[in-house]
Nucleic acid binder design. Sequence first.
DNA 1: ATTTGTGGTAACCTCAGAGTAACTATGTCT
DNA 2: AGACATAGTTACTCTGAGGTTACCACAAAT
Lengths: 124, 124
Amino acid sequence: MSRKYIDNPNACTLVHTMNTIGNKWKPIILYLLSQGPLRFGMLNLLVPTISKKVLSTQLKELENDDLVSRTAYAETPPRVEYALTQKSKGLLPILKALSEWAEITYPEIDFEQCRIADHQLKEE
Amino acid sequence: MSRKYIDNPNACTLVHTMNTIGNKWKPIILYLLSQGPLRFGMLNLLVPTISKKVLSTQLKELENDDLVSRTAYAETPPRVEYALTQKSKGLLPILKALSEWAEITYPEIDFEQCRIADHQLKEE
DNA sequence: ATTTGTGGTAACCTCAGAGTAACTATGTCT
DNA sequence: AGACATAGTTACTCTGAGGTTACCACAAAT
């Protein structure tokens, strides 16, 4: 047997990457932050179907993996801003490539349907 | 509010991509197949910690998404070969980029530890 | 007659991730 | 005094992805 799992450490890094960002919410969070820092409440507005608990968990995990930075301002009511880090900025072109790949590969899927989320958004 | 979920359909395609290949086993299956077609049993050997049932499920889903082709030969005992498709071949450079990103971003992680899987492999 | 090899399927179980709803701290506004 | 706003936490439930074990069909080999 010439081809062995042992010869494929790349597969391991892939598994790790998927464990890190390959879940239901993290790609979308990273994508939204790619356009600038956002507050907790604004993230919650932009992704109306995520619960505060889950959003909190995801952000904490992203912070642990150094993919998101958290800045709390000592005000009342509190203000907390989340932003991308150097590590996650390196990920952006890859996320973009994944996005384009899906668009090209599955032209029959209407990705615009996400717009339903718009109904739940308020104007600023 | 200028930045809306509605303005970010890219995020939707990301979610879709992650739903399609962002789970525990599919990236590793695709990566192994990138070096050539493999039979069911060989995939099971190369990923010794996956159960036959789960491997079967994953391959079926990949086939449904047209990311893997399944060729059964009418022999006894049966022989079935799995291979990448045009769609998944377009994914390979992106998977490679993800892999390299993880290696560069998390240099403290020893991705070589996957080699433990080697103990369970037999020579061909 | 029984075992072997291959590529599965069926029935069942488990547990982490996700969801829900209520609650908190703090200062400001009415 | 009470309501409001932000950024959470706590306690609870629920779902489904993944895991385990046993079994099947078929022909060839022993």
